[in-house]
């Protein structure tokens, strides 16, 4: 075969894929404001957000951005996927690159 096995490099980026819509836009806006290194990309059906090492989504800040009440179960509806280790609390979700 033509190729060598690629060297796998450890990565410390974390991120989410949010189902596109106003809630995803609001969540992306809160991340953009707090994480200058965040990479936010728009795809036809979802938004990808990548941040080095650690990212936290605060439900109250998303609610402020939306201008209406918002809660965790509804945020989980649009949280299509993530990479990193997730911790779901009552009012925030944290995703970090460390194990354990």
């Amino acid at each position: 075969m033509s190729s060598e096995t690629p060297h796998i490099e450890e990565r410390d980026n974390v991120g989410v894929k949010l189902i596109a819509g106003e809630e995803a836009d609001a969540a992306a806006a809160t991340v953009a404001a707090s994480y200058p290194d965040a990479v936010i990309e728009h795809y036809p059906a979802y938004i990808s957000i990548e941040v080095p090492k650690r990212v936290t989504f605060e439900i109250e800040r998303i609610a402020e951005q939306l201008g209406r009440p918002y809660d965790m179960p509804t945020f989980l509806v649009i949280l299509s996927s993530y990479n990193g280790r997730i911790n779901v609390e009552d009012n925030r979700i944290t995703i970090s690159s460390e194990l354990g």
């Binding site: 796998i8 990193g84 194990l99």
Partner: peptide, 14 residues
Amino acid sequence: LEDFYGGFYKKLEK
């Protein structure tokens, strides 16, 4: 390769 093996599996080496 990047997300799964690089961002997760590689960290299991420890």
